[in-house]
Design a protein around this nucleic acid. Structure first.
Length: 263
DNA sequence: ATGGTGGCCCGGCCA
């Protein structure tokens, strides 16, 4: 590992890897990411298709217990020092975070709890989970290092990250406490690097399956790549690949990736 | 029209 290398880091909530494997293989084939963070595999560790990724040249690590959640990292630039969970009391729902060292970057694949509704007990649990993620970063790495926290945050950081803010009043994903919890996580030393690259509105990563939302451009940007400044400063490109939301049996999320430089 | 679509897997729950 000498010299500077470009790495393409991607994240995708696949909404069941069992249902989505053909689309994931297809996407990896043309997008050629070096690291892919997956969320909502909905698989037990014993069911994860390590061989399918190995055939494409990727090492994989997965953390899941079956029906709910499930996160993974696939890497073709090395995969070491894997750890799972928040390591604190906030991840009782489990199987929502996995981390690994990939080509000189500490990569985390995260699936933040949905929260369901502002008056649900799952809502304060979501806020606590985000605080627990910051605590995990504090214990395991440093903002001076190359770190990429990638995943489905279930929070739209700003009003321009939803198709119509008036439709979301009183709902999760846009509330002040959720946005504050995300901002507090970023204040650890992370940059929403995709937004830094593209200040435009209407750049969404998720569209409801219902009501033709995708074709009506009714979405939200909730899948984020948060990186430390050493990576943000060297990020040359980023893309939300809307093509993966089209066609046969798409996930309701589409992948996001960035190109950055390590070393 | 508190609906609608899709994944889990077959009765609702979750997103």
């Amino acid at each position: 590992m000498t010299g500077r290398r470009r790495v393409r880091i991607a994240t995708w909530n696949v909404n069941s890897l069992t249902a989505r494997l053909p689309r994931v293989e297809e996407w990896i084939g043309y997008a050629q990411p070096d690291v892919v963070c997956l969320q909502e595999t909905k698989q037990a560790d014993s069911a994860f298709p390590h061989e399918a990724f190995a055939a494409l040249g990727y090492e994989t690590a997965h953390h899941g217990d079956g029906r709910w959640n499930g996160v993974a990292i696939a890497s073709r630039v090395g995969l070491a020092d894997v750890s799972t969970g928040l390591g604190s009391g906030e991840d009782e729902q489990g199987t929502r975070v996995i981390a690994a060292e990939c080509g000189g970057v500490r990569v985390l694949s995260v699936y933040v709890p949905n929260g369901r509704a502002l008056d649900s007990e799952h809502y304060p649990a979501k806020l606590a989970w985000l605080a627990g993620l910051r605590a995990l970063l504090d214990r395991t790495t440093s903002p001076d290092r190359p770190v990429a926290v990638c995943g489905d945050f279930n929070v739209a950081p700003e009003d321009r990250d939803v198709w119509d803010p008036s439709q979301f009043e009183g709902m999760t994903h846009v509330s002040r406490p959720e946005r504050d919890a995300l901002a507090d996580l970023e204040s650890w030393g992370l940059v929403d690097v995709f937004r830094r690259l593209y200040p435009d509105d209407e750049l969404f990563t998720w569209w409801d399956y219902r009501g033709g939302s995708f074709h009506r451009h009714r979405g939200m940007r909730i899948d984020l790549i948060l990186v430390t400044e050493v990576l943000a400063d060297r990020t040359t490109y980023g893309l939300i690949d809307r093509n993966a939301r089209k066609g046969e049996k798409p996930s309701d999320h589409t992948p996001v990736f960035i190109d950055t430089v390590v070393g």
